[in-house]
């Protein structure tokens, strides 16, 4: 077993241990719900990290895909009486298709049209949620979204949801890691180093980028569905542009070109967000600080640690060892 592989397994084991420890240490609904939020945000961020770090493209509409998952689940279960699991799958497929339709024309273009196109999609989706009448429930949203359940066992509290969401995160980590070692993963690495060189090796660069983009949208949709079936309620507010930005911040803070980076970024930002919210009860100004703070964090991370916390720290460590 190579040293790298040993380190990988050790890292994975540590992550699983930390996650498993939380419900043992505390059963407080508050902390468990933060744990679930980190998992959900982590699922979206890992997908966005693949897109950013490996395909070199940025999506500013990831919150919209998250929202499509949530609304897809809510609409299918409430209006059509669908089974929640089926609704989650159907929403993911639909979101993936939409991403494909956006991705094919924009990723074919040279440059960063995807960023603007996804920003546009984000705004359109938000308007559709708001103006959708009885289908989306308008600005007040849809209540009473059913829980996910296996047989008679419903994932109807924070602890149960925690135990459902995190295994999904770890499955996703393993899947993403294997994906990066596949033909597509090698193609993405080649694109990342030099798109022209990748093409001259007969790699279909546009197709590879579209696949990653679709995958990131599907991840976001799954997380959105989990969210809807957990809080049992959807409204347009959580799925708007600021959340898309926050997701980009999570990925940049953690480091895009690694799988753990975005997850760590998601944890950091979710905790900062919650702390500011708590602080806001005491100092009302703290709630307004979150936007500024996210901006400052992105700017500082990009300027001084452009590869994010994970890579930034490990490369500093490497430098220290070398020096």
């Amino acid at each position: 077993m190579s040293a790298e592989r040993k380190r990988e397994i050790l890292g994975f084991a540590v992550a699983v241990a930390i996650v498993a420890a939380l419900p043992v240490v505390t059963r407080s609904a508050y902390w468990l719900s933060i744990g679930v939020f980190i998992a959900l945000h982590g699922i979206v961020a890992i997908g966005l990290g693949l897109l950013l770090g490996y395909a070199g493209q940025v999506s500013l509409g990831q919150a919209a895909f998250y929202g499509m998952g949530a609304y897809g689940s809510a609409i299918l279960t409430l209006h059509l009486g669908c089974n929640p699991w089926l609704a989650m799958g159907a929403a993911a497929v639909a979101t993936g298709l939409i991403a494909y339709v956006i991705g094919v024309p924009t990723l074919k273009l040279h440059g960063h049209y995807l960023a603007m196109a996804t920003l546009g999609i984000g705004i359109i989706v938000r308007i559709l949620f708001n103006e959708g009448g009885h289908i989306t429930g308008g600005p007040s949203g849809l209540p009473a979204v059913p829980n996910l359940a296996i047989g008679g066992f419903a994932f109807d509290n924070d602890l149960r949801m925690y135990c459902l969401a995190w295994p999904i995160v770890f499955l996703q980590v393993v899947f993403s890691r294997n994906l990066l070692r596949s033909r597509l993963g090698r193609a993405l690495r080649a694109i990342h180093d030099s798109e022209i060189a990748a093409r001259s090796c007969a790699i279909n660069t546009a197709k590879a980028k579209v696949m990653v983009f679709v995958l990131s949208a599907v991840y976001a949709s799954v997380a959105g569905s989990l969210y809807a079936h957990w809080v049992n309620f959807v409204n347009p507010h959580p799925f708007s542009f600021p959340f898309s930005l926050e997701l980009v911040v999570m990925v940049m803070v953690g480091g895009a070109a690694s799988i753990w980076g975005p997850l760590i970024g998601a944890a950091a930002l979710t905790i900062i967000d919650q702390s500011l919210l708590q602080l806001g009860h005491v100092f009302p100004i703290a709630e307004d600080l979150d936007i500024v703070l996210f901006g400052i964090i992105v700017v500082l991370v990009l300027l001084f640690m452009p590869r994010g916390l994970v890579r930034g720290l490990s490369s500093q460590e490497a430098e220290r060892r070398a020096g």
Binding site: Q57, V58, H112, V248, D288, L289, V298, V299, L303, P306
Partner: peptide, 28 residues
């Protein structure tokens, strides 16, 4: 200027960061 030799995607994200910062400052 400090990032001008970075990949374009980094430069775009930093403009996103600045926009968030300015928006937050304006709100404050």
């Amino acid at each position: 200027r400090p990032l001008i030799n970075s990949p374009v995607v980094t430069l775009i994200i930093i403009t996103v960061g600045v926009s968030v910062l300015l928006r937050g400052a304006a709100k404050l």
